[in-house]
């Protein structure tokens, strides 16, 4: 195992390109060190590109209705940024329920995206907004919508030579912004069921996002369609067939498929019944 400590993004890109398939990027390391030391041997051949010394990547900028988070921006950085928390309140809500404060000060939004966990709470909030990510390589920058970034369990459209440089959120006006994480406890828990919702107040379009319900954090087009059509819902159970069209929760060590479906349905109903008069109680 080798570790490269570049101080500029261009050096980081060329180191990653040189490393070929052995190269991996690190920004915070909180997902990596979960494996230590029991699974460290799995990384014996890895060349880690540690971005921690590329300090401009920690920057948060907020201007002209656009928020940019750098590859090193931590959850806690966003909690502390009044502009970010005000413009995109779900980010702050998500940040405060990722692990503990001791993780929030180390873990990065970019790491959460690139690690590709289906339980990623940061991604849940980001995907509820109009979010694009910028992937840099020696060939230049490529912009990808977060909506289409994941292709399957822990797989993405990013190439092995690309580094997530920035996360770009375009601000809209929202009628509804909602985030809820269900875990074993209020703090220090990995999500069993996560739901984030936004409704744009200009064009009334919906974003419905779930985590821990499918192989990736995912938008839910069937649910978004039902909401756009203002279809009445007789009660929580009425959501179940639509949830089933969008996601496929599994039984695992944290929860069961049945629990996840039922809780997701109740979350949806309780979140929306009061806010959307067509749904009914």
């Amino acid at each position: 195992m080798r570790v490269c400590m570049p101080t500029t993004l261009s050096d980081a890109c060329s180191m990653l390109a040189d490393a070929g398939t052995a190269g991996r990027v690190m920004a915070g390391g909180t997902d990596l060190l979960v494996d230590w030391p029991q699974r460290a041997h799995e990384h014996d051949d890895t060349i880690w590109i540690d971005l921690s010394r590329v300090t401009p990547l920690r920057r948060i900028t907020c201007a002209d209705h656009v928020l940019r988070l750098g590859a090193l921006t931590t959850y806690w950085d966003v909690v502390q940024s009044e502009q970010a928390a005000e413009a995109f309140p779900l980010l702050k809500q998500a940040a405060r329920v990722v692990g503990s404060l001791q993780i929030q000060t180390r873990g990065t939004w970019a790491g959460n995206i690139m690690n590709g966990s289906p339980a990623a709470d940061g991604v849940l909030a980001l995907m509820a907004y109009d979010t694009t990510i910028e992937l840099r390589s020696t060939a230049g920058v490529r912009r990808v919508s977060l909506d289409t970034f994941y292709t399957g369990y822990r797989s993405t459209v990013a190439r092995a030579d690309e580094i997530l440089e920035s996360i770009v959120l375009r601000r809209h006006r929202y009628r509804i912004q909602y985030f809820e994480k269900i875990g074993t406890r209020q703090a220090q828990a990995i999500t069993k069921v996560g739901l984030a919702l936004t409704q744009d107040s200009a064009d009334h379009s919906w974003r419905v996002v779930m985590n821990s319900m499918a192989p990736t954090v995912t938008r839910c087009p069937a649910l978004e369609g039902v909401l756009s059509a203002q279809q009445p819902m007789a009660g929580p159970d009425a959501w179940l067939p639509i949830i089933d069209a969008d996601v496929s929760p599994i039984d695992d060590l944290r929860s069961t498929s049945r629990y996840r479906r039922v809780v997701a349905a109740r979350l949806l109903h309780s979140a929306l019944a009061d806010r959307c008069d067509w749904i009914g109680q």
Binding site: V3, M5, M26, G29, T30, L32, L33, V34, D50, S52, W76, S100, L101, Q102, I103, T105, R106
Partner: peptide, 12 residues
């Protein structure tokens, strides 16, 4: 800042 030192690589 408080951090979890079990999750922080020494190099960082």
């Amino acid at each position: 800042q408080p951090i979890a030192s079990c999750m922080t690589p020494v190099i960082d």
